[in-house]
Nucleic acid binder design. Structure first.
Length: 950
RNA sequence: GCGGACGUGGCGGAAUUGGCAGACGCGCUGGAUUUAGGAUCCAGUGACCUAACGGUCGUGAGGGUUCAAGUCCCUCCGUCCGCACCA
């Protein structure tokens, strides 16, 4: 250490103690070395990044969720997953595996644009600054990424391929017969040859060119739709369902969201609903996430039933067709297309008022399930097909247009909502099942089929009653499944409906009225038909705008139409193209893609970032992501990220990947084979008497367990790190106070990777002490010289402990249990510390110790490795192999229990027989003094345990 | 309301198949070194009883199975998360 630097030392002590200053010096040195030497470069089988040495070694693709380069910079909670994947990747690299680990930036998106609105700084400038800062913070952490593969979604060379994939989706249709997407040209072929007829039965060749376009466009996987969307004036854009919270506000910014009709780009994700659901079984994902995706897709099997009404057939979806005899009224949604026709003249005023009230209601109120149900009678009746009964048709906003058919048959005796509604409006309730004895007992009432005596509807399996006519007898059944089967058959035979499946999942709303996103590769002709721009003309660059701000809107203004910023790029807006029928003028699409687009495929661009011919070379995709065997999904080997992406990103990315799979561009049918959700790091925050947050770092914990700030008592709370709570700790703070290795070790030691835990800055010192002891075991703190000796005799017990540690650390690292790996390394090091307090440590022990800490604390390990005079980088060395012969102890400790309580422990040979073990146990004093006469029973588990029952 | 996960010292957390509860770290207590300590090192540290030897209790609460339960079964309580009128 130079004299000049010593003055900056904040802690005293020997010159070569492993202090923060020394750590900083070591860390900077090796970070430069790794960059210069490409230590973490991964080898591709072909292409620019190919490496002949690849040969026979295994591959591993470790992936972190694509980070957004936030202007706020990182706090200590952000890198938790990054460190976890880094340790795992480093460990596997040391096992000789070709490891892919890279990091890029999901850099399009609203925040940069919102920042631009506030500051006037161009989003690109702002985004680039943020990426640079995040790169710096992550580099300082010592992550072993292949730097050559870092991509950003805002790179023109990246979004060129995002647009290319959009074209693939636009130019594809879903062939239900083959259950896969196919190029749209093949559909055109089917129509032209007459193999396929239009839905209305007309022949395709008889249609006008414009009509033909409409037919084809209606099959595309990306299509324009004029349907109700989530309009958020506060953000000046519309949002996907997934981006709207349960209380009808925007996920970002918490602005009100309104439903209104607008023409928008949609992605036909619903055609993939079954595959997205069923293929979850092929994935190694946490059950909780699979469940969330299953719920989101919401597949529900039931039946469609068509009721006769004066305005024609009214179709409903129900999961309980078996209760059709009990359907005593119907309810349709206020947005139902048949409402007009069903409304009787004398009811129209009331109905209109109700519809208007429902439309004016914010989503918040509309979706409040706890509020009392409301509705009005339309004046029309439908016919119950089973008993011919005329049943009234009501409208009510508890029936949603977005699910099923937007209409229901109400069976008040068997459905809570219908029951409440019938009670409120005095509609008929007829029992069609005899509730069980238990049910009546539970409600402390006498069995009765008079529903007016029931406190709630009966739901479940039970004997059917009042459910038969001349043709159908459900009264013979006592469970829902059998009754459903019978009625499905009846409905089908009568042509009144039949079994069907419906989904909660809706098509994905894909356009945004913003500036900072990928432009669509779409132009419109003079008739307003969309055409994709030829791949050869990609990328369609974002035009430079003087004023890129979206038109400012009042968050409550749900009337004014959105004006996307690109509408003001007047020169860019129109373009002359020859798309096959001569040079013509086209208008560009002025919406941009949502932020999810880039993250739907980025994991493949890491693999082949320089490819200018394809988004990825198929051979490279196959090498890194291809299925491992028949039926294997393929995809990344490990994907680590937060649970907040459970449905949005993970569902969209799976959908795109499947389209690319169907079209033959990738060999894997899932993008992420194994998913792991890291926990969150949260922090304590403190408030004074007025409820104001006070700086958490200056709060003192008193001896009595209370907390004070500036002598005043404050209250503790626990939550996210954030500016408003004044409890942010940044990686930079940690680098300064302890160094990156200590910080990494602390984050990994706090608990299992998937658990959330509180940050405690004062606890970090424990890991610093550990590294200081490791350092001191190998290096003289006064001279900085290595103290390790060659050829010294090694204590057999320490050697055995080292090998035991190797075996156990290796296992822990492979299963992402870094916290226990660290505890075992500390134990080993503590043993070494006490054994070699006064003498130098043998090289035979020092080398494996250095290698074992390398994945966790890469800088100090590299420094020690170099001081040990070893070749190359420790991170490219072979992880030590446990000698299994050394793991077997000849002597083991046998536990002696009396009545299940531990009374003694004796050392025995590991090969001891049950009989010998029993004899030894019965002879020991702890047993004899408790034993009167013969033991009642002796359980022997030699050589570990003997339990004497007296 | 429905679904899911989880409850272990003062704190973060360990604990293959049921077989020594509390590894490791923080904090705390005592000691060493030091002009000094918010540095470093060493030792101790679940609770209770006991002068000590030793003993009793102890994994959210209650019950059960077992020679033996943090782990398996039943009932209840609490916390967190997801969905939320999905027909």
């Amino acid at each position: 250490m130079s004299e000049g630097q010593e003055t900056t030392e904040t802690t005293h002590g020997p010159e070569f103690r492993y202090s923060p200053a020394l750590a900083a010096k070591i860390e900077a040195k090796w970070q430069d070395f790794w960059d210069e030497n490409g230590t973490y470069n991964a080898a591709n089988p072909v292409g620019d990044l190919a490496d002949a040495e690849l040969a026979d070694c295994d591959k591993l693709y470790v992936l972190d969720m694509f980070p957004y380069p936030s202007g706020k910079g990182l706090h200590v909670g952000h890198p938790l997953g990054f460190i976890g994947t880094d340790v795992f990747a480093r460990y596997n690299r040391m096992r000789g595996v070709n490891v892919m680990h890279a990091m890029g930036y999901d850099s399009f998106g609203l925040p940069a644009e919102q920042h631009a609105i506030n500051t006037g700084v161009h989003p690109r400038k702002n985004t680039e600054d943020n990426i640079a800062n995040m790169r710096r913070q992550l580099r300082r952490l010592g992550l072993g990424h292949d730097q050559r593969r870092s991509v950003s979604t805002t790179d023109e060379d990246f979004y060129r391929w995002t647009q290319w994939i959009f074209n693939q989706i636009f130019n594809a249709w879903y062939d239900e017969a083959r259950d896969k997407a196919r190029p749209i040209a093949e559909l055109v072929g089917q129509y032209e040859s007459g193999e396929r007829l239009c839905e209305d039965g007309r022949s395709y060749s008889g249609l006008s060119a414009s009509e033909q376009r409409k037919v084809i466009d209606s099959h595309r996987l990306a299509y324009l739709s004029d349907s109700p969307v989530n309009w958020c004036p506060g953000l000046g854009t519309i949002l996907a369902n997934e981006e709207v919270t349960a209380d009808g506000r925007s996920d970002i910014g918490n602005y009100p969201v309104f439903k209104r009709d607008m023409k928008q780009w949609m992605m036909r994700i619903t055609t993939y609903a079954d595959r997205l659901l069923d293929d979850l079984d092929k994935l190694d994902w946490p059950d909780a996430i699979k469940l969330m995706q299953r719920n989101w897709i919401g597949r529900s099997t039931g039946a469609n039933v068509r009721f006769a009404t004066p305005a024609g057939e009214l179709e409903v979806f129900t999961t309980r067709a078996d209760t059709l005899f009990g359907a005593t009224f119907m309810v349709i949604s206020p947005e139902h297309p048949m409402l007009q026709a069903l409304t009787a003249a004398e009811n129209s005023a009331e109905v209109e008022a109700y519809v208007k009230a429902a439309a004016d209601k914010a989503e918040v109120d509309r979706l409040d399930a706890t509020k009392e149900k409301t509705g009005v009678f339309t004046g029309s009746y439908a016919t119950n097909p089973l008993n011919g009964q005329q049943i009234p048709i009501w409208i009510a906003d508890y029936v949603l247009m977005g699910y099923g058919t937007g209409a229901i048959m109400a069976v008040p005796c068997g459905d809570q909502r219908d029951f409440e509604f019938a009670r409120k409006y005095n509609l008929e309730i007829v029992a069609i099942q005899q509730p069980t004895k238990e049910w009546f007992a539970e409600h402390e009432m006498k069995p009765s089929l008079d529903c007016s005596t029931w406190p709630e509807p009966f739901v479940g399996d039970s004997q059917y009653v009042n459910s038969s006519n001349e043709e159908l007898d459900l009264d013979q059944y006592a469970n829902v499944a059998e009754a459903n089967a019978a009625i499905y058959a009846w409905l089908e035979s009568k042509g009144l409906g039949g079994a069907t499946t419906t989904y909660r999942l809706r098509d994905w709303l894909f356009s945004r009225q913003r500036y900072w996103g990928e432009p669509f590769p779409i132009v419109y002709d003079e008739d307003g038909n969309p055409h994709s721009v030829p791949d050869s003309m990609l990328p369609i660059l974002l035009p430079e705008l003087e004023d890129f701000k979206p038109t400012a809107m009042d968050p409550e203004d749900d009337v004014t139409d959105p004006v996307p910023p690109l509408a003001r790029a007047t020169e860019w807006l129109e373009v002359e193209l020859d798309l096959g029928d001569g040079l013509k003028t086209y208008k560009r699409e002025i919406n941009v893609m949502p932020q999810w687009a880039g993250s739907c495929w980025y994991e493949m661009r890491y693999l082949d970032p320089t490819n200018s011919e394809a988004f990825i070379d198929p051979e490279i995709e196959k090498y890194w992501m291809g299925p491992k065997h028949e039926g294997h999904s393929g995809g990344t080997d490990l994907y680590v990220g937060g649970v907040e992406h459970a449905v949005l990103h993970l569902l969209y990315a799976r959908f795109w990947h499947k389209v690319l799979f169907d079209l033959g561009h990738v060999s894997s049918f899932e993008p992420f084979h194994r998913l792991f959700n890291q926990g969150y790091i949260q922090a304590y925050a403190y408030r004074d008497e007025r409820g104001q947050a006070v700086p958490a770092e200056d709060v003192v914990e008193e001896a009595n367990g209370t907390f004070t700030y500036d002598g005043e008592q404050v209250t503790q709370e626990y939550g996210k790190m954030g500016k408003s709570l004044k409890n942010i700790v940044t990686p930079d703070d940690m680098y300064d106070a302890y160094g990156a290795d200590t910080f990494r070790l602390y984050e990994m030691s706090m608990g299992p990777l998937d658990a959330s835990r509180p940050w405690n800055s004062r606890d970090v010192v424990g890991m610093q002490r550990f590294l200081q002891r490791v350092w001191r075991n190998l290096v003289d703190e006064d001279t900085g010289e290595l103290t390790v000796v060659d050829g010294a005799e090694v204590d057999a017990q320490l050697m055995a402990l080292t090998h035991k540690t190797i075996a156990s650390v290796a296992e822990d690292m492979q299963s992402l249990k870094f916290n226990t790996a660290i505890s075992k390394l500390i134990e080993l090091n503590n043993e070494l510390t006490s054994s070699y307090q006064d003498q130098p440590m043998p090289r035979e022990l020092a080398v494996p110790l250095t290698q074992m800490i390398a994945p966790l604390a890469p800088h100090i390990a590299e420094e020690l490795w170099s001081m040990l005079g070893l070749e190359g980088s420790v991170h490219r060395s072979q992880f030590p192999q446990a000698d299994h012969a050394m793991l077997v102890n000849e002597q083991v400790e046998m536990v002696i229990q009396v009545n299940g309580k531990v009374r003694d422990k004796i050392s025995v040979g590991k090969g001891i027989s049950d009989a010998e073990a029993e004899q030894l146990a019965l002879a020991c004093e702890a047993v004899t003094k408790r034993l009167e006469g013969e033991p009642r029973k002796v359980i022997v588990r030699a050589p570990n345990l003997v339990n004497v029952v007296v």
